[in-house]
């Protein structure tokens, strides 16, 4: 009895059961951080939309069939030659870079666990970081001047190839390393050689991921300007098929030179080129993602 009274007294002194209290400072900081976090995402989304909308609004009046049927002249015209040039350059560099890049990727993932592989991986990561204008300048002094190719398709394509190689190699390596070891062991167990395993088992299995990497590479090469300025040059005419000694037009060049002209028609053409190149690049990226997702859903990822 006495004990109960005592307990009640103690409890009443303590007041209501103590609640876990969050201090005002913590609440304030959390609220502030929430605002900053959401704000930073909204900032990025706003930047993306403002780029797209800005380009679209300015390009809208210039988007007509004339772009596809006429070649550029000094201040205006269409973009037929530039569109053709951009496609030739990216497909050409893809054609050169894909076999080399993919085999480098195979080497990195299958045999690249020793020191040589580590060094190769490291150097290819460093190569990714080389500024594209430096690549262009080296292309200029080696191919354009020293080899005497002048501004040409070949010089542009080779410069772009060097730029794409490390990207393709790393994406291929990543794609192959997602294939479990047991699949390879099954192949070896059936008596297949190294080459057969790579061509019949690994490459088909990793094909969607490798393809996505290639899509990204094409997108990257389409959007480049700096390495092409002093290797591919610029031409107002359609390409006649010479690999050397003939410059070629491309879309990104139109953007940065025509915007500096004082004519409204040139500005519109620059924005139209920007619209085409942005649409092309984003389309390729989305296509690559969609292809990857579809393939994973259909054949099932190896994971």
């Amino acid at each position: 009895m006495a004990i109960n009274v005592l307990e009640e007294q103690v409890l009443s002194k303590m007041g209501s059961p103590k609640k876990f209290k969050v201090s005002l400072w913590r609440k304030l900081m959390t609220a502030l951080a929430t605002v900053m976090v959401i704000g930073s995402f909204i900032f990025l989304a706003a930047m993306f939309l403002s780029i797209i909308i800005d380009v679209l609004i300015h390009a809208w009046p210039a988007l007509n069939i004339k772009l596809l049927t006429e070649i550029t002249n000094g201040i205006g015209g269409g973009l037929k030659n530039a569109i053709e040039g951009s496609i030739i350059m990216s497909l050409g560099s893809l054609l050169l870079a894909a076999p080399i890049g993919i085999s480098a990727g195979i080497y990195l993932s299958e045999h690249g666990h020793g020191n040589a592989g580590k060094l190769l991986r490291f150097l290819s990561d460093v190569l990714v970081g080389v500024p594209s204008i430096v690549l262009g300048y080296v292309g200029y002094i080696t191919m354009v001047i020293y080899l005497g190719w002048q501004f040409s398709v070949a010089a542009g394509i080779i410069t772009l190839t060097v730029m794409l190689l490390p990207y393709i190699a790393r994406s291929t390596e990543l794609a192959l390393s997602n294939i479990p070891l047991s699949v390879r062991e099954a192949g070896y167990g059936l008596g297949a050689g190294e080459g057969r395993i790579v061509f019949k088992i690994l490459l088909p299995g990793a094909a969607p991921a490798i393809m996505t990497g290639l899509f990204y590479a094409v997108a990257l090469s389409m959007g480049e300007t700096a390495p092409l300025l002093y290797t591919a040059g610029w031409s107002n005419y359609m390409w006649t098929g010479n690999l050397t000694k003939e410059p070629i037009g491309y879309l990104t060049y139109v953007i940065w030179t025509f915007i500096n002209e004082p004519f409204a028609e040139s500005h519109m053409l620059a924005f139209a080129a920007a619209f085409l190149i942005t649409a092309g690049v984003l389309m390729l990226i989305l296509l690559g993602r969609w292809y990857m997702l579809r393939a994973q859903r259909r054949i099932g990822a190896y994971r």
Binding site: F41, M47, F48, I51, D54, Y216, I255, V281, L282
Partner: peptide
């Protein structure tokens, strides 16, 4: 996607956006 596609936009288009806007 907003953030990933931002990385894919060519640098000359960034330049144009900076110049015009």
């Amino acid at each position: 996607l907003f953030v990933d596609l931002l990385a894919a936009i060519p640098s000359v288009v960034y330049g144009l956006w900076g110049y015009a806007l």
